[in-house]
Write a protein that binds this DNA or RNA. Structure first.
Lengths: 205, 205
DNA sequence: CGTTGGTTTGACCAATTGGTCAAATCAAGA
DNA sequence: TCTTGATTTGACCAATTGGTCAAACCAACG
């Protein structure tokens, strides 16, 4: 994927288009987003927008690829040779940070999955599955060594995904129910206690 | 809300439209769904569809209202006079059952929230918030009485929402990562262990 | 059988959709 | 300054969108 040299104008406009596209696609999904919408938010005319990206699909695909490129980094960073509980907790906290710092990316991903993952189905059953399986082995090893309580590693990972992404994807609901928007620290503390209790549950016998 | 008398044909066609609409809206959201799409799936012509519902919005609204009508039932059913841990666990299991039995409804809700909850914002900060606050008092009471470990009740409820709805909203991803589709029982066992560990965590001191 | 009210449809509409294209404009280096 | 290539735009297009309407159809009851 060699980055072709870009003029300043290209860099600026492509960035503006991707930013506008992320805003729109993350809210309305691929089909619910229009080129005019993106063009206006990016401050460009529609033909001008299509000068930088050949099609609506190209914008969407570019955003998804950029996302997938970093989406798995927090899980990749969970290392077998660290302290098990702290490694898992640190992973959960990194995911929670991503929900705070990149909520639109999280919602873009959620939208894509809701629609049946038409653009990234292969990625899910390929890269993603392989990575999760690999980390499941690590978690199973920790459990076998008595470092954490026995746990289904796949569902543990699903739990971390759901608990953290919820704060980005359902942000509107969280804000409405809590009546405020400064709940991030509370969420982190709650998540920490929840996972810690499960991982350190005394094994009966 | 008096149900007007309906002919058999009306009942059948309205049901077919709502079913088709649920399919489409839950995948593609409001803006990403077309009337032609719904009409074809319902086996009706577009003008015929519009004979039963005055607009696309009316179909969507009808679905949302039908959903909200039962969406909170599991939480409402959580009673203060039961055994705390079992009440909370039973609530989580009811939500998980809803993810299994009504995944499209869950995705419809998720789509609405992702788009910023334009149709149900009032409901979120009204009914929903009131109900959650009410149950938070109950949970706080259980904690104060030493029946469960101290826990942030709002975030505990968010956790149950996210953990359970994840299996409906991200079903495609779960299937892809696990490589199979018969994971419901495992999910239930995992959820049970996770919440139980947290609720029964020994209070230090 | 005829009528009446519920049901269905083909034709149609204005607005919007994703996308094209040639012409015009602009920026910057020779 | 002139030129060249990058950038921008107005005009345009076919297809699709949500929605309308009058006419036709149909089921059932008197």
């Amino acid at each position: 994927m060699s980055d072709k040299p870009q003029t300043r104008i290209q860099a600026k406009n492509r960035a503006a288009i991707l930013a506008a596209g992320l805003d729109a696609f993350s809210k309305y999904g691929f089909r619910g987003t229009t080129l005019d919408q993106i063009a206006e938010a990016a401050g460009l005319s529609k033909p001008n927008l299509l000068y930088y990206f050949p099609s609506k699909d190209a914008i969407y695909t570019a955003l998804l690829e950029r996302l997938l490129d970093t989406w798995l980094d927090p899980l990749i960073a969970m290392k077998a040779d660290g302290d098990p509980v702290e490694e898992i907790l640190a992973y959960a906290m990194r995911k929670l940070e991503m929900s705070r710092d990149y909520p639109r990316e999280s919602r873009l991903f959620a939208n894509e999955i809701l629609q049946g993952a038409p653009h990234i189905a292969g990625h899910l059953s390929g890269d993603l599955r392989a990575l999760v399986d690999e980390k499941a082995v690590v978690i199973n090893g920790w459990a076998a060594a008595g470092k954490i309580a026995p746990v289904d590693p796949h569902h543990l990972i699903f739990s971390i995904w759901s608990l953290t992404q919820h704060y980005a994807d359902f942000e509107v609901q969280v804000n409405a129910v809590l009546g405020r928007e400064d709940w991030y620290d509370d969420a982190g503390a709650h998540l920490d206690a929840l996972l810690r209790a499960r991982l350190q549950a005394r094994v009966p016998g």
